[in-house]
Design a protein around this nucleic acid. Structure first.
Length: 763
DNA sequence: TCTATCTTTGTTTTT
DNA sequence: CAAAGATAGA
């Protein structure tokens, strides 16, 4: 035990060894949060206070769950497989599989990712002849998910006007459609489990009696439903150990409620509140930047990080003329870091939105530097993989209409809109799935559709005793997907991806502990598993702690769940030492020696859709805080005067966040730009401007009262802005100026009192 | 019914 | 700039 607890600081030690009572740990960035959480679990088990089966540990990302399991198995000589450590969604999936009957779901229910959900909604609207201009599918999706995140069914949602009443009605119909097809969306996984446990007292009491210790990571990210879910699991007696950081709450957009931290403190009568403020990650200047920035937020629980490390290097800031040059600068800096001995994988390039990665990727590719992109297009979201998955879904659950529609005519088999219309009519008439409705379609359409059904049934028959990876292979061959892409010009990559699916299946099978030769449809090894998966206790079927997943889920179902819930963390080229590219969101929880935060411009970061309201802006600021605190030794920030977005050049102002950083910690690298065309051409302008940038031609046109497009100006009332466009000339010149937080203004250049703005420079 | 081509439209973040 | 959707012609 000694070795378990040594090297913990007093606060960490106190947190790890708290008594079995509700506890809230306010853990700042880099304060050893994960360490405290895992050591706590290990300590509880080692001191015999609880058995591994009595632990429920919840995280938000699969990455975090895996990390926790890995650390735990290095700390304790126990098999972590049976332990309940996972994401909210993963754990709920597990519960629903085990109790599918009580939950009113087919055993092979399938999980819709957001793409699937949106197309299901579009399909619903179409079938109901609802005007999707008036009721945009996307809005309906947010409406539904928002309601579910609050724990509300359609009947529970209050609607005060016709418009919202329609949304409620559609919400209800959407649920009906999902139920008919045997599919659940992300929010439904949680809500269904919540309802199941609320309704079913014996079941609830069983799990309450079992999980004496519930530990929650990233508690600030819980939404109301998740919080209530935790309350339900906790019951009256269980110890909830919540770890979180209100300053790192960046998921309010999907319902996360920081207020849960305060609610938790109050409702659970938390007497054990511990703050971890010692930072072990970042050098002083970096931490100062983070602290100063986040101090601009109101409504904080209050916490200030400190470090024993020295000031270290200042934060370097660079202003580029274009996004392309920004990327090139990043690469030059990264190169010199590498020359100085830095490891590539310890350098991260962060951006606010995925679209920004393209320019950087291009530059990295040209420079021949290995890199790895996280997130973005994920493996299981690629079109060809989606098709393959749809075939697998139909084999597992033929009533999934989304899957049916995706591949019924892909590759083409002469089943067009008319046949499907007939089929949909039949399905609606009998209230059954499209697959089941096929026999009711007569004529030629009936024959071709029947052929498709035969195909799926043939695939099932051929694979009924095969292990998962062979099942996938047979599916690929029989579906005609491979042949289809062979005939396509750019199909080679797609075929490669499809072949990878076989390896993915094999990997999944070995990692999850399914026997590698076990048939994919049945519960393999179930006969040999020590103890049955489901035990009957007091007349209730419950999930046994030691039973591995396969006992309640067939390998195929499990694999499909995996595809939806994990989407393949883009493991591409793992192992190679490469630069790390990712959004700020996906960087949460990670740390790097050197970090580049890019695209720090008004409208991008903070994002224009968020900066309108105070709450949104504060979330953006927390996001920036997360970004800064990822860095250990070196931190770079950059922004650009121009940027391509939606195929056109945009002129953004530098981010307001620069004004919220402490000058002493910063070093501005960019050359002065204010008088660049009045003679003082220096450094960055020594190189010729890129061709094709449409502002360049205008930049040498001095006819517009001395102003040019792209220039930063200052206005008495609106503050700083960037000239986006100039119309007219001479005494008639008017300019569209982007004043960032004050919006776009059209000003007469001969009347408005504008001043040129100098960029600060101290290096 | 299929394919090629045009038009339109992009929430930014993720389980 | 792309991807998704709509339209026209084969």
């Amino acid at each position: 035990m000694q070795n378990l607890l040594h090297n913990l600081n007093p606060e960490q030690l106190a947190a790890v060894t708290l008594p079995a009572q509700p506890a809230l740990i306010l853990a700042g960035a880099g304060s050893g949060k994960t360490r405290v959480l895992t050591t706590r679990i290990a300590w509880l088990i080692q001191t015999g206070q609880v058995s591994p089966a009595g632990i429920l540990a919840v995280t938000f990302t699969n990455k975090a769950a895996k990390e926790m399991i890995a650390r735990l198995s290095s700390m304790l000589p126990i098999n972590t497989r049976g332990m309940w450590i996972g994401t909210f969604h993963g754990l709920c999936n597990r519960l629903l599989r085990a109790h599918h009957r009580d939950a009113g779901l087919p055993q092979t229910f399938q999980i819709l990712d957001s793409q699937d959900q949106l197309s299901a909604i579009k399909r619903l609207l179409k079938s109901l002849n609802v005007d999707d201009e008036k009721y945009p599918p996307r809005n309906l999706m947010y409406f539904i998910n928002g309601a579910k995140d609050q724990g509300l069914r359609a009947k529970d949602v209050e609607a005060n006007d016709d418009y919202n009443r329609k949304f409620v009605e559609l919400y209800d119909l959407y649920d009906t459609q999902c139920q008919r097809e045997g599919v659940v969306d992300f929010a439904e996984l949680l809500l269904r489990t919540y309802e199941l446990l609320t309704r079913n007292q014996p079941l609830r009491e069983h799990y309450q009696a079992r999980f004496r210790h519930i530990l929650v990571d990233e508690f600030q990210d819980t939404n109301n439903l998740q919080y209530n879910w935790l309350k339900l699991m906790a019951g009256q007696h269980n110890a909830v150990f919540a770890v979180g950081d209100d300053d790192q709450s960046i998921y309010a957009f999907r319902g996360a409620n920081v207020g849960n931290m305060i609610a938790f403190e109050r409702e659970f009568h938390v007497e054990n509140l511990i703050k971890l403020e010692q930072n072990y990650r970042s050098h002083g200047h970096i931490l100062d930047a983070a602290n100063t920035l986040i101090a601009n937020n109101s409504r904080r629980l209050g916490k200030n990080l400190r470090t024993d490390a020295g000031h270290g290097e200042p934060v370097r800031i660079y202003e580029a003329e274009s996004d392309i040059r920004e990327a090139n600068w990043i690469i030059e800096e990264a190169k010199s870091l590498i020359n100085e001995g830095a490891t590539r994988s310890e350098i991260a390039i962060l951006y606010r939105s995925n679209a920004q990665s393209r320019v950087i990727e291009h530059a990295l590719f040209t420079a021949g530097i290995p890199y790895r992109v996280y997130g973005g297009q994920r493996y299981f979201e690629r079109a060809e993989i989606k098709h393959a998955i749809a075939y697998l879904q139909l084999m597992d659950n033929p009533h999934n209409d989304s899957a049916f529609l995706r591949v019924v005519n892909f590759p083409t088999r002469g089943i067009g809109a008319r046949s499907l219309e007939q089929l949909q009519d039949a399905a609606r008439q009998y209230g059954i799935s499209m697959y089941a409705a096929v026999p009711y379609v007569t004529g030629k359409a009936g024959t071709t559709l029947g052929g498709f059904v035969k195909l799926i049934e043939g695939m099932r028959f051929e694979t009924q005793n095969l292990p998962l990876q062979e099942l996938v292979q047979v599916m690929l061959d029989m579906s005609g997907l491979i042949t289809h892409y062979q005939n396509e010009k750019e199909g080679a990559d797609r075929i490669e991806n499809l072949e990878q699916l076989v390896s993915a299946a094999m990997l999944f099978v070995s990692e999850e502990g399914f026997g590698i030769d076990a048939p994919a449809f049945l519960g393999p090894k179930s006969a040999e598993v020590a103890g049955p998966a489901l035990t009957i206790a007091d007349g209730v079927e419950v999930l046994d702690a030691d039973a591995p997943l396969p006992a309640v889920m067939s390998p195929l179902s499990a694999f499909l769940s995996h595809a939806s819930l994990e989407a393949g963390d883009n493991q591409a080229q793992a192992g190679q030492d490469a630069l790390q590219l990712m959004t700020v969101h996906s960087a949460k929880g990670l740390e790097f020696d050197a970090v580049f935060i890019t695209g720090l411009e008004e409208g991008l970061f903070p994002h224009e859709n968020s900066a309108q309201e105070e709450a949104g802006l504060e979330e953006e600021r927390r996001l920036m805080y997360v970004a800064i605190t990822r860095a250990k030794k070196r931190l770079y920030m950059s922004f650009s005067q121009t940027r391509m977005l939606h195929g056109q050049t945009r002129y953004n102002m530098k981010s307001r966040f620069f004004d919220e950083l402490p000058d002493e910690a910063l070093k501005w690298l960019s050359p002065k730009v204010q008088h660049r065309w009045f003679g003082q051409r220096k450094s960055a302008w020594d190189e010729p401007p890129e061709s094709g940038a449409n502002n360049i031609a205008q930049s040498f046109n001095r006819d517009n009262a001395g102003w040019r497009v792209g220039e930063t100006v200052s206005h008495a009332k609106f503050g700083e802005g960037v000239i986006v466009n100039i119309e007219g000339s001479g005494t008639n010149s008017r300019a569209h100026i982007n004043f960032g937080r004050h919006g776009m203004k059209l000003l007469d250049l001969n009347i408005a009192k504008l001043e040129k703005v100098a960029t600060r420079l101290n290096g």
